[in-house]
């Protein structure tokens, strides 16, 4: 049982983290809180990917030992799986880019409604629509 837990707990934590993020994105009414949730959500996915690449035992980080000019045989089992790391570098960039654009939008929203609370914004819009019509 303990073995099972040890072999899986990392994945469970990522699920928990992700659900915290998802909950914040859906339930929180403050737009910045939604963005924080979004960051947590994306980070959780990155955590999952990084966990894929882990190899138990005595393995090296994916930088070939000896550096330049090494010619001894390189065994794949000695090094961590580099592919998830590569993918996640991209994902981190995507995450920060999304955050940037979202924050820009957020500033525009604040300029227009002077609030960041979703309910208040909806109320303002409703009022605007009634007076407009």
């Amino acid at each position: 049982m303990l073995e099972f837990i040890i072999s899986k707990y990392n994945f469970w934590f990522y699920v928990i983290l992700m659900m915290i993020g998802l909950y914040a994105m859906l339930a929180k009414r403050n737009l910045v809180k939604k963005l924080i949730g979004m960051n947590i959500f994306q980070t959780a996915i990155i955590l999952f990917y990084v966990s894929i690449g882990v190899k138990a035992g005595k393995v090296h980080v994916p930088i070939i030992i000896g550096g330049h000019g090494t010619h001894h045989a390189i065994k794949a089992a000695d090094y961590l799986n580099p592919l998830p790391h590569v993918l996640m570098l991209t994902a981190i960039v995507v995450s920060i880019a999304t955050t940037g654009v979202a924050l820009a939008v957020l500033i525009l929203i604040y300029r227009r409604y002077k609030t960041l609370n979703e309910d208040e914004i909806l109320a303002i819009r409703q009022a605007g629509r009634e007076t407009g019509a």
Partner: peptide
């Protein structure tokens, strides 16, 4: 996650199918 390979399993498909070639060949 129940059917996933154990965490850190060096013989999981992810660690044995595509990536070994990167490690062996990249240098």
């Amino acid at each position: 996650t129940m059917d996933m390979p154990a965490w850190g399993d060096p013989n999981s498909p992810a660690n044995t199918y595509v990536s070994p070639r990167y490690i062996e060949e990249a240098m």
